[in-house]
């Protein structure tokens, strides 16, 4: 059989998320590098502006659902739009990012379409006709290889596990405008307001560099030195639960068991001891740097580079050196 793949390309605040390129690259690898059956979907008014970018990533057809119902993500309208595209066109694999948005609606989408759900995978491929994937479990302490036993498979790919690939920088977008017939009786929850965040820094789950602070930061104000360091390298700032519970950082910055799972190229843990709960949220980072005054802190066992020093001395030097590199 030939698989037909649909990739949900997430747009937020009018911007295409970096996961669009990552998911298209992984899906294209699954299709042995062929773009013919690799399609993508964009939702929201004005989203067509991103079609060209998706074409350069290898999407040979891009559905555009240009309606105000899908301007803000809100579950049900998104599920209805995707379901209609899937059923009208016979897709067998549907891929999205394992971002808060992707993880919110993909499980529901899989049930509505009687499909298999492979959540937060770090890679997927074909074995014969079956979709197989690697999925971390037990807080990253082990992984399973799971295989879809259904005729349609839904996959969310963890952000940052693989790079985007430009297949053809001059590719022209083949756009199909898709008009959705919404079943409004089913829409019983609505987003009435969206409060925007600072917005200048990348989302934690997608950031390539994260500077994180623990209890040793000792105050909300002191987080400033971490933000300065992150901004020098266009990174984001995370926090341990201890820092969040002490009121030094908001929950949205929390990395770990009950917070976010992150997967950056570089994770700098400043004044974080390294509890299993914290490690579970950042252990797959490609490179871990730990800065801590306590030489026995468990974080040093997981670190690629450890600096036994006071973070208030070390971080400003780190920021200065990062700035030099970025010049």
């Amino acid at each position: 059989m030939t698989h037909k793949v649909l990739v949900y390309a997430e747009v937020r605040n009018g911007k295409l998320k970096s996961t669009a390129g990552e998911t298209l690259a992984e899906a294209r690898k699954m299709l042995a590098g062929k773009s013919e059956n690799l399609h993508a979907v964009l939702l929201g008014e004005g989203c067509e502006q991103h079609a060209k970018t998706l074409a350069t990533f290898g999407a040979s057809k891009i559905y555009v659902v240009d309606t105000p119902d899908t301007n803000t993500y809100q579950g049900e309208p998104t599920i209805q739009a995707l379901t209609q595209i899937i059923q009208k066109n016979g897709y067998t694999v549907v891929v999205g990012p394992a971002s808060p948005t992707g993880r919110d609606f993909f499980p529901r989408l899989s049930i509505r379409n009687k499909g298999a759900m492979l959540t937060d995978v770090v890679g997927f491929s074909l074995d014969g006709d079956s979709v197989v994937s690697d999925i971390p479990m037990y807080l990253g302490k082990c992984a399973k290889q799971a295989v879809s036993a259904a005729s349609i498979t839904f996959v969310t790919l963890r952000p940052n596990v693989r790079p985007s690939e430009i297949v053809d920088a001059n590719a022209q977008a083949n756009v199909e405008k898709f008009s959705v017939e919404f079943d409004r009786a089913k829409i019983t929850s609505k987003v009435v307001e969206v409060r925007k965040g600072a917005g200048e820094r990348p989302d934690l789950t997608e950031a390539n560099i994260i500077i994180s602070g623990g209890r040793a930061i000792a105050s909300k104000d002191n987080f400033k030195i971490l933000f300065e360091c992150a901004d020098a390298v266009h990174g984001s700032v995370g926090a341990s639960r201890a820092a969040v519970d002490s009121g030094y950082a908001p929950y949205e910055m929390q990395v770990g068991q009950t917070g976010k799972t992150v997967n950056p190229g570089l994770y700098v843990a400043c004044g974080i001891s390294g509890s299993i709960q914290h490690l579970s949220g950042m252990r797959t980072s490609k490179c871990i740097v730990a800065i801590n005054t306590d030489v026995d802190a468990p974080i040093f066992q997981k670190a690629d580079f450890g600096i036994v020093a006071d973070l208030f001395q070390a971080v400003p030097i780190l920021t200065r050196e990062f700035k030099k590199l970025m010049e």
Binding site: S110, G115, A116, M117, L118, V132, G140, K141, C142, A143, K144, Q145, A146, V147, S148, A149, A150, R283, I288, V295, F300, Q301, K302, A303, D304, F305, G306, I307, V308, A309
Partner: peptide, 23 residues
């Protein structure tokens, strides 16, 4: 019937010890 089956489990590769700078 279930829609997802598990084939195998594996542990992540052991990380080589890092370089610790002190003193």
């Amino acid at each position: 019937k279930p829609k997802v089956e598990v084939r195998t489990y594996k542990l992540p590769p052991e990380k080589a010890p890092g370089k610790i700078f002190k003193g």
